[in-house]
Design a protein around this nucleic acid. Structure first.
Lengths: 175, 175
DNA sequence: CATGAAAATCTCCCAAT
DNA sequence: ATTGGGAGATTTTCATG
């Protein structure tokens, strides 16, 4: 069994063997997941270490791929991206090449923030961020309606984003 | 018209008047959205500024709330969080108090990464991150099956996360 | 892992455009 | 009003114990 597609990942970062995480590592990850702007000595203080070994651990967490990247989260409302659409997509056929083509297209679309190949009635779930309805309409017409392999798609719109977290619950993850 | 609930936001950060963004600001945001670990002088170089004014702009983008936070993105596979579930939830009634209670509950659940109040057939869409099926089962039994106001919920599981971006397309957002 | 020093970086202030 | 340069203050990193 292999992933649905995209095994030709251009530059899949090859990470070192990856040592196990102890309690301090998880605490560091937990803090950085929520605020990566914290200074090293601030972090060190919160996990009960001196700055030097704390810095080493953070570097290791990066190098070994536990932290894949650090990003700034932009407030969508402030930059005029006010509409989030959820699109469930059903393809005509679930042949590997059809899936791969669709996935490549979605990955290339800047409006598509998230794209999941899913189980259940439809094949894909998209999360699309747009400026407004006009922009979403343009996206649908240009991207989805032009895609021959789509049997149908259904859109729901966001009325209120109650929660948007990028953090993973590390207690539950390892325990 | 008001948001569906949660207007009692405990500490909604009150941001300054918010000046408009020029091309350089958007370029800064665009870069930081994808990599906030870049040094200030590296950023300054890429946007064609010297370090000092670049630092000032970044500070302003934070202070005025364009950047709501900076976070480390943890690789789910590396920390044993391998299962993502999508749950569409239909409530018994769409009364404000029922919505508010449900939203508060979801916001408090660490496994719930995203929660949207949506238009369409169901009321909410949840993105839930779990260690495995057993963990998801426990989540469903403890959290959803105990919630009296839920008429029904339907789960789809992630088979392949094709794309996971937190960046907003700023070109489209402002044009 | 902690301590202490060196190197690099960030941030503030001031002059200049 | 915003930029660019420089000094001061932090921060990170590398050595040693």
């Amino acid at each position: 069994m292999q992933k649905s597609a995209g095994n030709s990942n251009p530059q899949a970062p090859r990470h070192p063997p990856a040592t196990a995480l102890d309690r301090i590592d998880r605490k560091i990850l937990d803090i950085l997941q929520r605020d990566s702007r914290i200074t090293n000595q601030g972090l060190a203080g919160r996990v009960g270490l001196s700055p030097a070994p704390c810095s080493r651990r953070v570097k290791r967490l990066h190098d070994e791929g536990y932290i894949s990247r650090e990003v700034a989260i932009v407030d969508p409302a402030r930059v005029g991206s006010t509409l989030i659409a959820f699109v469930s997509v059903e393809l005509d056929r679930q042949r590997e090449d059809v899936l791969a083509i669709f996935e490549r297209k979605m990955a290339a679309q800047k409006a598509v923030q998230q794209c999941y190949f899913i189980s259940g009635e439809s094949d894909y779930l998209l999360v699309v961020a747009c400026r407004d309805m006009e922009h979403y309409n343009a996206f649908v017409r240009e991207v989805l309606a032009n895609e021959h392999n789509i049997r149908r798609f259904r859109t729901s719109f966001n009325l209120n984003r109650v929660k948007y977290d990028t953090a993973i619950d590390l207690e539950a993850a390892l325990d």
